[in-house]
Nucleic acid binder design. Structure first.
Lengths: 206, 206
DNA sequence: GACATGAGCGTACATATGTACGCTCATGAT
DNA sequence: ATCATGAGCGTACATATGTACGCTCATGTC
């Protein structure tokens, strides 16, 4: 027997999922309250029991999406350290692409709304992506120590990598599986370039 | 005395400009025919004399935006070769940022609709960006010959650079001038990393 | 000068959208 | 057992939106 608050949370979740599904098709900025309500299987006015308006929902959505993604990334990272036979770059990007696949809607939301929405919304998204970059910076630093190959400007390198992976990865979502593989290879090669460049700069600076 | 076709072209242009202005605020996907008409100063139904529907307008818009941008880029390139005292990377990116500034709406459209719209629209945008990448590839190749420092995988390097410059650049549009400067510096540093990486790979392959 | 063309307008209407208001009725506290 | 709470519903309405239809009247052609 679900308790009362559980029920409420369930509906809230249903709304978020509905919004996510719809925004994958037409973009978040063209969502309608009624459309969401219909998709979530509730009456339009019930929406207000959970969110003040659609922008409010948007922020909640970014929160939840960011959370899920970071959990996925953490898990993925563990998997990467597990398969030591492949290169770290390849393993990371392949894992990344894997769940960019299975969580396409999340990515679309995070990357498809660069300008399609209100400023607060955009800022929230930017913050989520910045978190990724920070996490990656930490990883790069420890990897550099282990391998003995120092990197210059780790923060910048991380930003470049995240930008490349996210944006090219997002563009690949629509493509057929085979094409996506190719894109993954491109991303890997490009990320490697950044790594090499950062290493070269570190070497030159010494 | 403006001729008849000139007049028609003028209104068409007014519509495109209106759409551009509005989509800068709320995103292209939330444009309304009536809103555009109002902004353009015509009756809603007159819209149909120029475009079948909003999607049709969207494609035309991408076309025109792409064209303008490429012209701007060409012009910018000339300016870059003019100031030989600065590094090529710095000069290029600074010029790029300069008119990302003055043509903010164009950039928003080109970069803000990654997922916010229909598939054909997205594909059209992807194609425009690909053109940029191709142009840059050519530039990089000739620059490499002149400098005597060969680059590995020029196409990939160009893609990485364009991705970085466009996406970080677009994110910076909203920021205050001083912050934008900092972003420009980051972009420059990151693009340089890619250059160094590609050079390092070319050297390693020899 | 007569005439066909077509850009732009105003009216009209069906549908979509946000949201106010008040009801129900299961839940959980007293 | 009683009762306050509040999630979800249905109704209602003002406004927004896409678009069909037919008119006007300046333009360019004959």
């Amino acid at each position: 027997m679900p308790t009362r608050v559980e029920r409420k949370n369930a509906t809230r979740h249903a709304i978020l999922q509905a919004a996510l599904r719809l925004s994958a098709e037409r973009g978040f900025s063209s969502l309608s309250l009624r459309g969401i309500a219909a998709e979530a299987g509730i009456a339009p006015t019930s929406f207000y029991r959970h969110f003040q308006d659609i922008d409010d929902l948007g922020l909640a959505l970014v929160d939840e999406v960011g959370l899920s993604l970071r959990q996925l990334i953490r898990e993925a990272r563990r998997r990467v350290s597990a398969r030591k036979n492949t290169g770290v770059t390849r393993a990371s990007i392949e894992t990344f692409m894997e769940f960019a696949d299975s969580n396409a809607t999340l990515f679309r939301l995070l990357l498809g709304e660069g300008a399609g929405s209100t400023a607060p919304f955009r800022r929230a998204i930017a913050k989520e992506i910045a978190r990724f970059t920070d996490d990656l910076s930490d990883d790069l630093r420890s990897a550099a120590k282990e391998s003995g190959k120092p990197l210059a400007d780790v923060g910048l390198a991380a930003e470049a990598m995240v930008t490349i992976a996210f944006n090219l990865g997002a563009a690949a979502i629509d493509l057929p599986a085979e094409e996506r593989r190719k894109v993954a290879d491109r991303i890997i090669a490009e990320v490697r370039m950044v790594v090499r460049g950062a290493q070269a700069e570190a070497a030159a600076a010494r």
